[in-house]
Design a protein around this nucleic acid. Structure first.
Lengths: 217, 217
DNA sequence: AATTCTTTTGACCAACTGGTCAGGTTGACG
DNA sequence: CGTCAACCTGACCAGTTGGTCAAAAGAATT
């Protein structure tokens, strides 16, 4: 583990990092559970076992805290987006991407919910991301998908709708987890169920767009 | 149009009905745009051009108003659920159901958003619906889908995941309309785009589960 | 040990919001 | 026309909440 030589992580800096992480993680959960307006600084402070004034020391306003939470989530989304390999075969590129998104739904359910909330309410905070990064990424992948279509590797489908289907289906398992748990007898998915869900979603989508599968490279 | 004979809709009754409808429609929009906590009675009153106290005359509390909004939405959902004909072929039953759900996403975007919001936040109000009506309906349709599988009309897939996919994909067009509009150049879908989206979603899902299509009955 | 900078915290405040209420208005009905 | 019940509404109130602040506590540096 290298460390920037002139910054040997003082006790202060370490604590600061820890506190920041604690606040952000707690805020993410509370925002996910109650929405932006429904979440109170007091509730976040209580859950993090910090005095409310301490939160305002690190984040001047509720909006600033919220914004950081959303930015963290966007980076996770970007990470998954990277796994959509434009060089790979449709099966590999889409399969990997879908699996990655399912993993995120499992590992970051709160983040996903915050993101969903934000978009449902008209994306007042993240509108710029949608117009810049998301639009660019989407267009680059549309090109790839259209190339696959031209090469006869998949059926002719509107790439946008394919992407929407992947987004909605995978995120559904995080955003609507309460509904899914209820229909699962009140018990959250276990490992096997997550694996099965991932496989099932991947299979239906890939088959649905006529991907030739299992073709050795 | 028949009318209950002994109730010739007095001026008062008519106005009452109109006011109730106005409040509910306005509330649905405001709740969709700001969430339960973010929506204020004052905002709903202003949008409906009524004094706030008048809202409280018709609905004693904010919760009561919200509950009615959610119940209305649930009835629309039930209406679509009915269109899942257990007697029809997989292609007809699922195709009709998907199309109906897409229509609802277009005609009731606010309702869909309120519902999504509610489920994301743990369904504090509608939990009973999920456990009773939704569970029963889901199980009845799972049986039908399993019958189709046994008869070789569709591939072997977990019926639950198929239903989740239909729900998430169709509702995505309502709940995430802001994202979709942004990726559509800032312009909402027109008639042709809605038709194309519906066709595309239907095709991918039906093909994805190996439905034999266009088979004459 | 003294000094300086960062961090922590309880007490406080102004703005907002759900809900109330008393009094006024309007339609129904004899 | 008079009476009554349903309906409407401005003014008000109590509880909540985001944010402030001054003072205390703690770390870093000399």
């Amino acid at each position: 583990m290298l460390q920037t030589a002139d910054k040997p992580t003082s006790k202060r800096e370490g604590l600061r990092r820890e506190t920041l992480a604690l606040i952000l993680a707690t805020a993410e959960r509370i925002f996910a559970e109650h929405g932006f307006k429904g979440a109170t600084m007091q509730a976040i402070a209580d859950e993090a076992k910090l005095p409310k004034a301490n939160l305002h020391y690190y984040f001047p306003t509720k909006q600033a805290l919220y914004r950081q939470v959303v930015e963290r989530i966007f980076n996770i989304w970007l990470d998954a987006a990277e796994s959509f390999d434009t060089e790979a075969s449709p099966e590999d590129a889409l399969g990997t991407y879908i699996r990655k998104k399912m993993e995120i739904s499992r590992s970051h359910p709160y983040g996903s919910k915050v993101w969903a909330n934000e978009v449902i309410h008209g994306a007042p905070i993240i509108h710029d991301y949608l117009e810049t990064t998301l639009t660019e990424w989407t267009e680059s992948r549309i090109e790839v998908i259209e190339r696959w279509m031209a090469e006869g590797l998949i059926d002719a489908v509107d790439p946008r709708h394919l992407l929407y289907m992947i987004w909605s289906t995978t995120q559904h398992y995080a955003d609507f987890s309460h509904q899914i748990t209820t229909l699962n007898g009140g018990v959250p998915f276990d490992d096997a169920q997550w694996a099965q869900a991932t496989e099932c979603v991947t299979n239906i989508i890939l088959k649905g767009i006529g991907v030739r599968r299992g073709v050795p490279s």
